[in-house]
């Protein structure tokens, strides 16, 4: 690993490669996360998401990786002190109490004792576990362990928070709490790197997302950037439109019962469809733009077999 450039990206990973024997888990991944944003990493199982997160956190050694985290090379010890991390399926020593867990891991993160003593009960309280601090974690439920894990990741007041499936095991209220917490952190200028398979969660909180498929970043950008080219317009008219199928097809649209669907951000074609329907005496009931969800985009990427690396040239818009 080497320092390739110093940027204001909170995370700037370039050409990350990792092989596990014959399996090429990451094939030159490039990911950029702006400081102060919530960034979501998504992809199907086995896409390499957790491996990428683990490489960021020095848990896994890459075969090749360039770039920076918080402006310093990957794994720089001083910068790791500014990162909070919650791994997927984390386990805490069962012989420790909640407060002891927070104290132990914060001590490893070089948080001074005075700060630890003050912050641990505060964070437990923030996570709704104020009464559980002196109970052994072996008696915690999965949701409580997840909340404790979040508190653990926040003990060093990190500039960058890396969360791998943070809402796993949480009930709807817990998920909402996590969402609110992430939004609060963003408002305080913290950067959040979120790895989750819950697309609706990502959609609700993320500023930008990357889709990792087959070891490549297939798409990366803001939610609107990813979904705008996949917008549809639904033109609904009265009656059966079967007799107009040929003319609808000529306009590169398709029919679904009494609805004509125009794919793409092409208002001219939408107007042509409306003209066609009105010329044939059909009453227009509604015209609705339909933006694709993140799930639709993901399905499109997976279904389309996309998996080519996002060119590094796309990084030219890096904030300085």
């Amino acid at each position: 690993m080497e320092v390739t450039e110093i940027t204001n990206w909170a995370v700037d990973l370039i050409r990350v490669h990792k092989r596990y024997g014959k399996i090429h888990a990451l094939r030159g991944v490039n990911v950029q996360v702006r400081a102060g944003e919530i960034f979501g990493l998504l992809g199907p199982n086995g896409a390499g998401k957790t491996t990428l997160v683990k490489i960021m956190m020095t848990v896994v050694r890459p075969d090749e990786a360039h770039g920076t985290v918080l402006g310093r090379r990957l794994g720089h010890p001083k910068k790791l002190a500014r990162v909070g991390y919650l791994p997927e399926n984390h386990r805490f020593p069962p012989y420790l109490t909640g407060l002891q867990v927070l104290d132990y891991f914060a001590a490893l993160a070089k948080v001074p004792r005075r700060v630890r003593r003050q912050r641990a009960p505060e964070l437990l309280d923030r996570m709704g576990m104020a009464d559980w601090g002196n109970t052994r974690v072996s008696k915690y439920s999965k949701g409580m362990l997840q909340r404790l894990g979040m508190a653990q990741a926040l003990m060093n007041d990190p500039d960058l928070l890396v969360l791998d499936e943070p809402t796993d095991g949480l009930d709807p209220i817990g998920r909402r709490d996590v969402r609110l917490l992430l939004q609060e952190l963003r408002s305080r200028g913290k950067t959040v790197f979120l790895n989750s398979h819950l697309l609706s969660e990502l959609e609700m909180v993320c500023d930008r997302v990357a889709i990792l498929v087959g070891g490549y970043i297939a798409r990366q950008g803001t939610l609107s950037e990813l979904t705008e080219h996949t917008v549809e317009y639904h033109v609904v008219a009265e009656g059966d439109l079967a007799d107009l199928d040929a003319q609808i097809a000529e306009l590169q649209a398709r029919r679904d019962r009494s609805c004509v669907i125009v794919t793409g951000h092409d208002t001219r074609r939408v107007n042509e469809v409306i003209d066609l329907l009105r010329r044939n005496g059909r009453m227009i009931e509604s015209v609705r733009p339909h933006r694709f969800s993140l799930e639709d985009v993901l399905m499109e990427v997976i279904g389309g077999g996309e998996g080519e690396p996002v060119p590094i040239a796309r990084r030219l818009d890096a904030p300085r």
Binding site: L80, V83, Y85, N89, F92, P93
Partner: peptide, 18 residues
């Protein structure tokens, strides 16, 4: 072995220590 248990070791080695 308990230090290197999955789920525990990830948190520990991500801390700022060699």
């Amino acid at each position: 072995p308990s230090l290197m248990e999955r789920g525990t070791i990830e948190v520990i080695v991500s801390k700022p220590m060699r």
